[in-house]
Simulated assay, not measured.
Amino acid sequence: MKAWKKRGLVFCPNQNFGWMQTHAAVPIAERIEGDLYRIYFSTRDATNRSRTGYVVIDLQKPQAILELSENPVLDIGALGTFDDSGAMATWLAEWNGQRYLYYIGWNLGVTVPFRNSIGLAMGAPTRNFEKIYEGPIVDRTMREPHFCASCCVIPGADVWRMWYLSCTGWEVRDGRPSHHYHIKYAESDDGVDWRRTGQVAIDFGDSQEYAISRPSVLYAGGLWRMWYSHRGAAYRIGYAESENGIDWSRRDALAGISVSETGWDSEMIEYPHVFQHDGQTFMLYNGNGYGATGVGLAVLESK
């Protein structure tokens, strides 16, 4: 695998609006036209509730912000619903002229800090997104009793594929509840109703690793390729390959990107979103503080 060349920090909120105080986490790229892209991200208000906003950039001049959303693309849900404490976009898919925006709903907990599940909003091109249901489309079940979160969805005429975060349990560590989660695989005929068998896509590498999240999958060169976050002491970006999209081999040494020596992504690097544009492969990602220091851009070197 070739190395990624970092293009620098693109955007970091700084109390821009009441709903956009800090963080630009879990970025997603949507092409508008030419080199123009809308970059969706999850931001937080003063009480840590997350909503989804966006910036518009030119990939050739990514530090120049051309537009910043004044209102959320996705807002929190009604009191008591699965997303009443946060609506965090995690993946955007397009199929038959319709856009499918999958997002993480947040509920606050008592015995544990939070619970997540996956919701869906939809919108035609140039139209706003609207939540399809008040409830989640992927949630905990009798066989997955904890929570589900960040996902990647690839539509297909034969089958829709989803790779998603699945919590395997909580434990008390240093007097506080600590979660464990890895990445599982599901299939669907329509992108809404999902068949889940418990198939693990990316599992823990060792006893020190406890969090694997935010899968980003491309099919290229005859292989399914996945970039993702994995954490022991601190988040890093990993890489895996698969011939069928179901059975994966971790090859983290080939991820091609890591923390910088100094600066906004010197402590951790996570939440990759990989996409192709005009023959090149780009990555959006977060650095220190789970998105507190903003969104960066990298391009896969051609040589």
Rank of each mutant, 00 (worst) to 15 (best):
Val112Glu: 12
Pro113Lys: 08
Phe114Tyr: 15
Phe114Lys: 08
Phe114Ile: 09
Phe114Val: 14
Phe114Met: 11
Arg115Met: 08
Ser117Gln: 15
Ser117Phe: 03
Ser117Tyr: 09
Leu120Val: 03
Leu120Cys: 06
Ala121Cys: 09
Met122Leu: 11
Gly123Glu: 09
Gly123Lys: 05
Pro125Asn: 10
Arg127Met: 15
Asn128Ile: 10
Asn128Lys: 15
Phe129Arg: 03
Glu130Ala: 08
Lys131Trp: 03
Lys131Gln: 01
Lys131Gly: 04
Ile132Tyr: 10
Pro136Ile: 11
Ile137Leu: 02
Ile137Cys: 11
Asp139Ala: 13
Arg140Thr: 04
Met142Thr: 08
Met142Asp: 09
Met142Gly: 01
Arg143Asn: 01
Arg143Met: 11
Pro145Phe: 00
His146Asp: 04
Ala149Gln: 04
Ser150Cys: 15
Cys152Asp: 15
Val153Asp: 03
Pro155Cys: 01
Ala157Phe: 02
Asp158Ser: 10
Val159Asp: 12
Val159Thr: 14
Arg161Asp: 10
Arg161Lys: 06
Met162Ser: 07
Trp163His: 00
Tyr164Ile: 00
Leu165Trp: 04
Leu165Ala: 05
Leu165Tyr: 02
Ser166Gly: 15
Ser166Ala: 15
Cys167Leu: 01
Thr168Lys: 12
Gly169Ser: 06
Trp170Pro: 04
Glu171Trp: 13
Val172His: 02
Arg176Cys: 06
Arg176Glu: 14
Arg176Tyr: 03
Pro177Ala: 11
Ser178Met: 11
His179Lys: 03
His179Arg: 06
His179Tyr: 06
His182Phe: 11
Ile183Phe: 00
Ile183Asp: 02
Lys184Thr: 11
Tyr185Met: 05
Tyr185Phe: 15
Ala186Met: 04
Ala186Pro: 08
Glu187Met: 08
Glu187Cys: 11
Ser188Pro: 08
Asp190Val: 10
Asp190Glu: 10
Gly191Arg: 11
Val192Lys: 07
Asp193Trp: 05
Trp194Ala: 04
Arg196Glu: 12
Arg196Asp: 07
Thr197His: 13
